[in-house]
Amino acid sequence: MKEETPLWEVFIRPRNGLAHRHVGSVHAADAVLALDAARDVYTRRGEGNSIWVVPSAAITASDPAHADETFDPTADKIYRHPTFYDIPEDVGHM
């Protein structure tokens, strides 16, 4: 089979002050064409003012099979949350 046109993940920032957010993907031979494609596909209705494209192959993802050991140990570390600590109401907002 012929070589396939690579896949890119597209991230758009809706406006200044917000983070770029994943919106989908495009196929393009290189980064410049990927940016053009992302613009033409994902910003047709004024969805953003900045685009990132990243080769899909460059993304390393955590393994859902290891999700328990990766994410569960954090569940009982409740001392990381402000409500863990008792402060008398008289002290006021803290």
Binding site: K2, E3, T5, A28, A29, D30, L33
Partner: peptide, 15 residues
């Protein structure tokens, strides 16, 4: 369109 897609890939490789 095959030649167009191939040309884009070839150009990317050259670059």
């Amino acid at each position: 369109g095959a030649w167009v897609r191939e040309a884009a890939l070839a150009h990317a490789a050259k670059r």
